Simulated scan of single mutants.
Amino acid sequence: MRHFAALAFTVLASLAHATSLEAIQKKGEIVIGVKDSSPPFSMMDTKTRALKGYDIDFALGIAKRLNVKPVFKIVESDDRIPHLKNDTVDIVVADLTRTAEREREIDFSVGYFVTDDRILAKKGRFKSEADLAGAQIAVTATSSTSKKMKKNLPNTPQVEFEDKPEMVKALLAGSVEGVAADGPVLAAFLSRMPAAQRAQYEISDFAIEIKTIAVGMQKGEKKLQEAVNLALVDMENTGEAVTIFNRWFGPQTAMPMMRIFKISNRRF
């Protein structure tokens, strides 16, 4: 009887796991893990208290194409994968870099943004990657940036923080010599500094990592993965993805970038 009960539980769990897309659509809502302090990808509007940003626009686009209501849940960087594995959220759209290590734990959509990691620091402090040796650099705990630096820059001490605003505060206070993060995110923080203060800092010309940002979901959720991929590709084909990119990274923004990628079913 115990064996039968265990087998029945396993079968039911497997069925529940295999039909998550149907469960989401039946419920009529999708719980999306997002950040609230990672501009321009996601941030809380101080006036309206509404979330906005590149990630938020894509999360809304996915929910619209799945014909369900988006329910946002704020997550910290080191909570993104645990929330997925614990069924706290259905998907994560939170500046999540796709890496081989993470792909052993969760599944990813096709990429919807390609970026690089750089260093924010006092002007002239880091002219090349070699200057990072021995320098204390602020990183987000458990981030792909931190792991990449530990592997490729073992002589660069890391100081871990839970979120990027705290990292920038530490830099301004002189507690660390630099902040490592997405180039666009660093540009956003730099642009928000008072002019006199901003004139003292710069973002490194060199990149320490090129990375693809994608939507995360539980391992084995093939139907959900396919639906999210179709949504992202449709956003590209209809021009919505380009509109979102220009809204946050276009010529009129504080951090203009050239769009060097196109969302497609082909991995990049």
Score class of each variant (00 low, 15 high):
residue 3 H to R: 10
residue 7 L to E: 10
residue 10 T to V: 10
residue 21 L to F: 12
residue 23 A to F: 02
residue 26 K to Q: 13
residue 27 K to R: 15
residue 28 G to R: 13
residue 30 I to L: 12
residue 32 I to K: 01
residue 33 G to H: 01
residue 35 K to L: 12
residue 36 D to T: 02
residue 45 D to C: 06
residue 49 R to F: 03
residue 53 G to P: 04
residue 54 Y to P: 02
residue 56 I to C: 14
residue 59 A to C: 05
residue 60 L to C: 05
residue 65 R to A: 12
residue 74 I to C: 02
residue 76 E to A: 11
residue 79 D to Y: 00
residue 83 H to P: 00
residue 93 V to H: 02
residue 95 D to N: 12
residue 97 T to C: 08
residue 97 T to S: 12
residue 99 T to K: 09
residue 101 E to D: 14
residue 105 E to G: 06
residue 106 I to K: 09
residue 108 F to G: 02
residue 108 F to H: 07
residue 114 V to M: 00
residue 114 V to T: 13
residue 116 D to Q: 13
residue 123 K to Q: 06
residue 123 K to E: 01
residue 123 K to P: 06
residue 124 G to E: 01
residue 125 R to A: 07
residue 126 F to Y: 07
residue 128 S to M: 08
residue 130 A to I: 04
residue 135 A to N: 06
residue 141 A to H: 12
residue 143 S to W: 04
residue 147 K to H: 13
residue 149 M to G: 11
residue 150 K to E: 14
residue 153 L to V: 03
residue 157 P to W: 01
residue 157 P to L: 03
residue 163 D to W: 10
residue 163 D to H: 11
residue 168 V to Q: 07
residue 168 V to A: 02
residue 169 K to W: 00
residue 171 L to T: 13
residue 184 P to R: 14
residue 187 A to H: 13
residue 187 A to D: 14
residue 189 F to W: 10
residue 191 S to G: 15
residue 195 A to T: 09
residue 195 A to K: 09
residue 195 A to G: 06
residue 196 A to G: 15
residue 197 Q to C: 03
residue 201 Y to R: 01
residue 202 E to D: 07
residue 203 I to K: 01
residue 206 F to A: 13
residue 212 T to C: 09
residue 214 A to D: 10
residue 215 V to R: 08
residue 224 L to W: 00
residue 226 E to M: 09
residue 233 V to Y: 07
residue 237 N to A: 10
residue 238 T to M: 06
residue 241 A to W: 04
residue 243 T to I: 05
residue 245 F to C: 10
residue 249 F to G: 03
residue 250 G to K: 02
residue 253 T to H: 11
residue 253 T to V: 14
residue 255 M to Y: 13
residue 262 K to L: 10
residue 267 R to C: 07
